[in-house]
Structure formats: C-alpha cells, structure tokens
C-alpha cells in the first residue's frame, strides 16, 4: 500500500505585477518506512513542495494523500525540521522539545519523562534545563530533532536540516537521524542540495528541474547503500559511481 501519494501538484506564486510557477505537475509515491530525497538546483521549488506535503500551503492544483486521505482535511501528525533549528530562545531545551505536546494540550508527566529520555537518547540529556543560546549548532539541531520526534509523527519532513552545520557535525547528525528513523520505522522526505547527503541517506532520490519545478528524474539508490548507515555508505565502493551518475544529470540541468 502506498503511504503518501502526491498527485499532479502544481503551485503558483502571485505578486501584484507578476506570477511565477513554482511547481508543475508533480506526482510521486512514497511507501511506508521509505526515505526519499528531493534534490535539484536552487529555485526548483523543493521547499514549496515540502510545505505542500506538510499541509502548510494549499497547492493551486493537485492533491496530497496520506494513507488514502487528503492531507489538508485531516489532523495528521507531521514532523517538520527546518534548515535552522528555530528553537525558541526564551524556552529551555526541555520546554522547546515539549512544544508540540504543549500546543496539542497533551503535556503531562509521562510526556515530560519521554522528552528527557529522548534527549538522553540523542546524546544531549544534560542540556534539558539550558537555553538554546548556551548550546552549539549541532546540539541545537539535535534538540530540534527531539522536538520533531516527540509528537510521534507519521512522516518526517526534513528541509535541509544539516546544511547550516560544519562537516563533522553534519556527518554525525546524518547518522543519528538515519538510525533513529530506522529504529522507529519512520517515513521521511529530505530536501537537500547536497547530492552526497541524498545518496548516503535515502532509498529513492527525486531530482527536480527549475522554473517551473518539474520531476526531472527518479533515481533508485543501489540496494547495498540503502542498507548501510550514511557514514558507511559514503565509504562504500558503489558510492562514487552512483554519485557520478547523479552529478552528471544535475550538471546537465544546470546548462
């Protein structure tokens, strides 16, 4: 059974003297537990597409179905991780993690305990009473991950969550996210401009072309790379050749 279906989605942005077509006729399917990446040149509408899937923007045409139901008509739990952590600076890390339950009025003692366990699991258990500005970029993005996971979302939408981090932190976080997604059997969609990251993390890669954003090509990541964690995958012999493959496609798009 397909888990998430994107059907003929198009989206236009309007301004007073112009309009731009951000997306045109996007259709694809994601099955449960799959990790999908969206890559493409800047301005191909990656983030717009993610916002549509999240139900934050209504597409001008087309529908998004999650388990056969239209996404905008139901209160589905989606986890959305942004490029920067966007932790609320006036809340402690624990309060930040508990933001979702707080908004949904589900905050109670067991939730608080769960938040602490989750923070411990991703390696920042002792920061729970600190404020975001006391943490490093990597730790903050971890806290942001915990905030996304605590509501137990059916699907995780990752909008370049690693792009603002230094290389080493980025590799570590990629591994952490991949492991956690695998453990909890979560479905995820990652938006990135980093081909290596897309290959290392995902099962399927959708490449979009720009203005308007259209599906250019769909890649299936080699089976052996899918099984590995991102760090191992980057070292694997199959990695460079597949990278070349994707890179060439991307390069052709740029012409």
């Amino acid at each position: 059974m397909t888990f998430l279906t994107v059907q003929h989605v198009s989206h236009q942005y309007f301004s007073s003297d112009n309009y731009t077509k951000a997306l045109e006729d996007i259709s694809f399917e994601v099955s449960e537990g799959q990790f999908l990446s969206l890559i493409g040149p800047s301005g191909c509408g990656k983030t717009t597409l993610l916002s549509i899937i999240a139900g934050l923007i209504h597409p001008t045409e087309g529908t998004v179905l999650l388990e056969e139901n239209e996404i905008q008509k139901q209160k589905v739990q989606l986890g959305y991780m942004l490029q920067q952590d966007y932790l609320f600076p006036w809340k402690t890390i624990k309060e930040n993690v508990l933001l979702g339950p707080h908004i949904q009025r589900k905050k109670d003692v067991s939730m608080e305990k769960q938040a602490e366990e989750l923070l411990a699991e991703i390696g920042i258990g002792d920061t729970k009473n600190l404020y975001p500005n006391q943490l490093s970029g990597g730790m903050r993005q971890r806290a942001s991950l915990a905030r996304t996971l605590i509501t137990d979302p059916k699907i995780l939408l990752l909008d370049e969550p690693f792009s603002a981090l230094d290389y080493q932190t980025k590799l570590k976080l990629e591994n952490l996210v991949a492991t956690i997604l695998k453990t909890y059997e979560k479905t995820a969609i990652l938006v990135t401009h980093d081909i290596e990251e897309a290959i290392a993390m995902s099962d399927t890669i959708i490449m979009l072309s720009a203005s308007p954003g259209k599906i250019h090509k769909i890649f299936s990541v080699p089976e052996e790379l899918q099984q590995m964690n991102p760090f191992e995958a980057r070292q694997h012999a199959a990695f460079p050749s597949f990278f070349q493959n994707v890179w060439k496609e991307m390069d052709d798009l740029g012409q």
């Binding site: 959305y80 609320f88 006036w90 933001l99 908004i103 509501t151």
Partner: peptide, 28 residues
C-alpha cells in the same frame, strides 16, 4: 521570523497559540 510560526503550525497551533507562543514573546 515566519519560521517560528511555521514550527508552531506544523504542530497544528491555533492563531491564539501562535500569538502567545511566538509573536508576543519574540517581541518583548
């Protein structure tokens, strides 16, 4: 920053909650 609002909206926050949790404290 719109992104604070975005974070709240992904949790299904109401307009009042958006005001109380992000808009007001960020403007203090």
């Amino acid at each position: 920053d719109e992104n604070y609002v975005k974070v709240l909206r992904t949790f299904g926050a109401s307009r009042y909650q958006i005001f109380k949790e992000a808009i007001f404290p960020a403007s203090i």
